[in-house]
Structure formats: C-alpha cells, structure tokens
C-alpha cells in the first residue's frame, strides 16, 4: 500500500472506505508527544497499574516483568505517571 503522501485523489476508494481494517496501527501517534514517561525500575513493583490505565494500550510488558511505553504510539499524556502507585514514572520533556 502506498503511503498517505503518495496517494492521489484517484487512488482513494469510493466513499473514502478503508479496505484494510486495522491499518490505524501504522499511524505513529508518538509524534504528538512532548513529554516522555521514564520508569525508574528501582522503585517499580511491576503491578501493571500503568498498563491498565494507558488509554492507548501503548504500554507493553517486558520479558523481565516490567512495564514500558511503546514510544511509536505513546502520546505522552502522563496518565501512567499520575496513576503509578509508587511514583516510579516521571515525565521528562522530549529534547527534540
């Protein structure tokens, strides 16, 4: 499939129907982020509250049982930091 920038009006399906369902997963919502969640593992109890509260399901469980944001999707809303029981997530400004 062509990227959005390569599509001409003639390439669109009738009625702007999207015939590949689920292709929203290709969309990098991480571009919206101005603050990034950083987990301090020394305080993390691996409870998964951040995982439950993340509104975009952008938090994944690592092999060691910790929880980390997938920065491709994470919009930096800060809900995980707000809800974290031990306060081990801090929001740091994106440098770039």
């Amino acid at each position: 499939m062509k990227s959005e920038e390569a599509l001409s009006w003639k390439d669109l399906e009738v009625g702007c129907v999207v015939s590949q369902p689920g292709n929203a997963s290709q969309y990098r919502t991480g571009d919206w982020r101005s603050m990034r969640p950083v987990v301090h593992r020394d305080h993390c109890i691996r409870c998964g509250v951040c995982y439950i509260f993340c509104p975009d399901m952008a938090i994944r469980k690592t092999d060691e049982g910790y929880f980390e944001a997938d920065l491709y999707y994470c919009k930096g809303c800060g809900i995980c930091a707000q809800e974290c029981i031990t306060g081990c997530i801090s929001m740091v400004p994106e440098e770039e």
Binding site: W9, D11, L12, G15, C16, V17, V18, S19, P21
Partner: peptide
Amino acid sequence: RPTTVGAFGLPGIFTEAKKA
C-alpha cells in the same frame, strides 16, 4: 470483507478526499 467506513481524514489526505 471488513472495511472502515467514515474514517478520519488527516490533513495529508483530506484535500484528495474533497477532490474525489
């Protein structure tokens, strides 16, 4: 044959949708 009807049109595609 599942499809999405009424999807979001971001700035990168909205003009093309209107032309169509």
